[in-house]
Design a protein around this nucleic acid. Structure first.
Length: 800
DNA sequence: CTTGCCTCAAGACTT
DNA sequence: TTGAGGCAAG
């Protein structure tokens, strides 16, 4: 389907016998010698992995914990299926969620058995696989095979029209909100007629389902689908056309699914339909790493697998090859607080290494300073920047680190962020290309008719689209008609005439010129590049670069059409990975990755776990947050360093924050709680316990401030001391080897002596004067005179 | 039609 | 605090 030159172009598999394949596999330079009757990749597997690879028949659930060799199992299984001749490459359906995962699986399989991997036509994402099926049978669901796959932008604009056409106030009922509702419904495989009433009432007083139906109708008229439709239309194709379903059920003798814990209801149905005949469905996943519930993923799918597919074999991969025992223990203990899980026990043969560090700081700035210093030190010890990563809960947290790294000239990379193909300039360029490809692409027309400015404003476009809809013709056609009459005047008329003429001109050129040259011509003649060159905005330089990059990447494809088809679905051209740098990314984006050194900042209540999760009733959301913490910890190979601040600027306001409950849930024996300010509850409990048990050895050097950790006034004194010295001073001093595994880290929040009483007047350095309104151990609620009620920790206030 | 000011909201993000 | 989007003035 995709004319991606480097990949699928020349597979010749169909003529090869299994024997040839296997011989070729054996001939691969694997650096392993094959034992009689064994395939080389088998030698590389542990017992459980082997079982997962060899259990080819019937439903199989492979529960693969973090770092247990999931991809190795998947690829070995593919190799096994092919080389034993159990299946031809085209009889295997292998689905992933991301293109990246699909690519990796293909490449690694090819590494095992050579170019046979290229014949795996049905290795792809849920969406690309669906698109392939749907293009084959488009007419059966009311589409033309050339249907366009809409991106979010187009979708929103379409919804905006639908909402307007119903005479609704789109400030009150935003297209964005409707889009998210529809996405949710599609995730649950709900067609407009199946949307429950209460759900429909979430939008415009019950009009939700109607608007959804209108939107679907518009899509069909435009010969478009959105991402959700790819699955949904395929499902309805299967349900309504028994012969088509049967054809695919018969073809796919074996089905493999990656990241099964992330599947939604629609994907579950899709899989179940396809697996019905042969029932050779192998799913791989980890319930403890299900972190996409908000995107429609149903953890229940994996929890219920055994029930849904009776007789399933369950294989637990528990040997971890990534992290040290301390890191694993911390992660395992943390996740054991979740109730809804199948349960696994990760273990490793790695040497102990350092404990998980937990550090408390005065504010976010101090946290960024500390982490930057750590990284410098890591670097000075001969390691690379690229071995370190900062994993945050929310992207707003990234800025503090970027600023600090910039200041210290530490190279860094932000992973995620606006992706290449979501940038405005790229979408604009695509809109031009799409319009040249087919003049009736109204959404593309609307996007760029006035970009760059041609004097065709909203009013003119409105009038144009009203007339076009009335006449039932595409916008370009209507525009030509309108120009024939004298409806439009002045600038709008001149601009539109010129634009239409240019379109015709480019369409002619499209027949003669190579597509990359055409692209350059369009960008130049339309005035788009000039617009960017004239733009004073400093970003416009990089926008121009992006366009150059775009034209270059088009060269990978044979034709403009091939390029556009690929791009609509894949949207995934890797940005050039630039050299050595610390990586900053969200916890979500970190899933599946690993680094020797991992920083986990911002472990504070309402930040992580997030306020939203805490506000939600029930513990579903909280459990997902905990899984996120688990994902974070298990990214670390050698060192995991958690930190939290007492004060943080959130949305420009100072807020006083409390340490995350997840810190309470870490097992004492595997954690070093390092207190610099001495203020924080949990860690202070630990610090005290540790210092008690450990005596003077753990004492920070110098300053004579370390006697009497047991004394009741210690915390306050230490805090005051730290404040006087301007924050964290002795971070490293408290570290050192800690032998006492018994000491209780978990001085539960709220335990301990209250040092303040209700009604006392106190002073806080950041918030000023206030009265004690509530006391819960060392957590105080203070009614501040200036800033209202806030929760703070007692060591940060003193009697006024 | 474009420009600039004001208000409002603010989670993670792939296909 | 930042940014996106709406609205009034030029």
């Amino acid at each position: 389907m995709f004319a991606y030159r480097s990949n699928l172009a020349n597979h010749t598999m169909s003529s090869e016998s299994p024997l040839t394949i296997s011989q070729r596999a054996m001939a691969q330079p694997l650096g392993l010698s094959a034992v009689a009757g064994e395939f080389p990749w088998m030698l590389d597997l542990n017992e459980r992995q082997r079982q997962a690879v060899e259990t080819l028949d019937g439903p199989v659930l492979v529960l693969s914990g973090a770092g247990t060799g999931k991809t190795k199992v998947l690829t070995s299984r593919l190799a096994q299926l092919l080389v034993t001749g159990r299946a031809k490459p085209w009889e295997i359906l292998a689905v992933t969620f991301t293109n990246k995962a699909a690519r990796e699986m293909r490449e690694r399989t090819q590494r095992l058995i050579g170019p046979v991997g290229e014949g795996l036509r049905w290795l792809g994402t849920f969406h690309s696989t669906s698109a392939m099926i749907l293009r084959q049978h488009a007419e059966l669901v009311g589409l033309k095979p050339s249907f366009t796959i809409l991106d979010t932008d187009d979708q929103i604009r379409l919804l905006k029209q639908v909402i307007e056409s119903e005479g609704l106030d789109q400030k009150r009922w935003t297209p964005r909100f409707l889009a998210s509702l529809i996405e949710g419904w599609k995730n649950r495989a709900l067609t407009p007629d199946k949307v429950p009433t209460d759900q429909a009432f979430l939008f415009a007083n019950g009009k939700g389902a109607k608007l959804y139906a209108l939107y679907q109708a518009r899509l069909k008229i435009l010969n478009c689908v959105d991402f959700g439709d790819l699955l949904l239309e395929t499902i309805s194709l299967f349900l309504n056309q028994a012969d088509v379903l049967n054809q695919y059920q018969t073809r796919f003798k074996f089905i493999l699914v990656d990241e099964y814990q992330d599947t939604n209801v629609a994907q579950y149905l899709w899989l179940r339909l396809l697996a019905q005949q042969h029932k050779n469905l192998c799913v791989v996943g980890d319930d403890d790493q299900s972190i996409y519930g908000w995107r429609g993923a149903e953890v229940d799918n994996i929890l219920r697998f055994e029930h849904d597919f009776p007789g399933a074999t369950i294989v637990r991969l528990e040997r971890n090859y990534r992290s040290t025992p301390h890191i694993l223990a911390a992660a395992s203990h943390l996740i054991s607080s979740n109730k809804n899980r199948l349960g696994k026990t990760l273990w490793t043969k790695m040497p102990d290494g350092e404990r998980v560090l937990v550090r408390g700081l005065w504010d976010g700035e101090a946290e960024a300073r500390l982490i930057a210093d750590d990284i410098e030190q890591w670097r000075r010890s001969g390691r690379r920047y690229g071995e370190g990563a900062v994993l945050v809960r929310a992207s707003w947290q990234m800025r503090a680190f970027e600023e600090r790294f910039l200041m210290l000239q530490i190279p860094y990379r932000v992973i995620g962020g606006p992706r290449f193909f979501e940038r405005a300039e790229i979408r604009d360029a695509h809109a031009y290309f799409r319009l040249v490809r087919s003049l009736d692409d109204d959404l593309a027309f609307e996007r760029i008719v006035n970009v760059p400015k041609r004097g065709i404003g909203d009013t003119s476009v409105q009038r144009l689209s009203a007339a076009a809809r009335l006449a039932g013709v595409p916008l370009v056609t209507m525009a030509k008609d309108l120009l024939g009459s004298d409806e439009l005047k002045g600038q709008a008329r001149t601009g539109l005439t010129r634009f239409i003429n240019q379109l015709e001109h480019w369409r002619k050129k499209a027949l003669e010129l190579p597509h990359t040259e055409l692209a350059e011509m369009i960008l130049d003649e339309s005035g788009y590049t000039d617009m960017l060159k004239a733009d004073k905005n400093p970003q416009s330089v990089s926008r121009l670069d992006n366009l150059k990059e775009l034209v270059r990447s088009m060269g990978l494809f044979d034709t403009l059409a091939a390029y556009l088809e690929h791009i609509e679905l894949v949207m995934d051209l890797d940005r050039a990975e630039a050299g050595d740098g610390v990586q900053i990314l969200t916890l979500h984006a970190a899933k599946g990755l690993e680094w020797p050194l991992v920083f986990l900042p911002g472990w504070e209540e309402e930040v992580f776990p997030s306020k939203r999760a805490l506000d939600e009733k029930g513990d579903k959301a909280l459990e997902e947050e905990r899984r996120l913490a688990y994902v974070g910890l298990t990214r670390a190979r050698e060192s995991a360093r958690i930190s939290f601040a007492a004060n943080r600027q959130i949305y420009g306001r100072w807020a006083s924050v409390l340490p995350s409950r997840f810190i309470d849930e870490l097992p004492d024996g595997h954690v070093d709680a390092v207190s610099d300010t001495g203020y924080f509850t949990q860690a202070i409990g630990a610090a005290e316990a540790r210092f008690n048990a450990y005596g003077p050895l753990s004492t920070p050097p110098g300053d004579g401030f370390n006697a009497g950790y047991e004394s009741p006034g210690w915390k306050r004194a230490q805090a005051a001391h730290a404040l006087k010295k301007g924050g964290l001073t002795a971070a490293k001093g408290f570290g050192g080897p800690i032998v006492d595994g018994e000491a209780k880290l978990v001085a539960k929040t709220g335990a301990g002596d209250a040092k303040y009483k209700l009604g006392q007047r106190i002073f806080h350095d950041k918030f000023g004067y206030g009265l004690v309104a509530h006391v819960e151990g060392s957590k105080l609620t203070i009614a501040f005179e200036k800033s209202g009620e806030k929760k703070v920790i007692d060591s940060f206030v003193r009697l006024a």
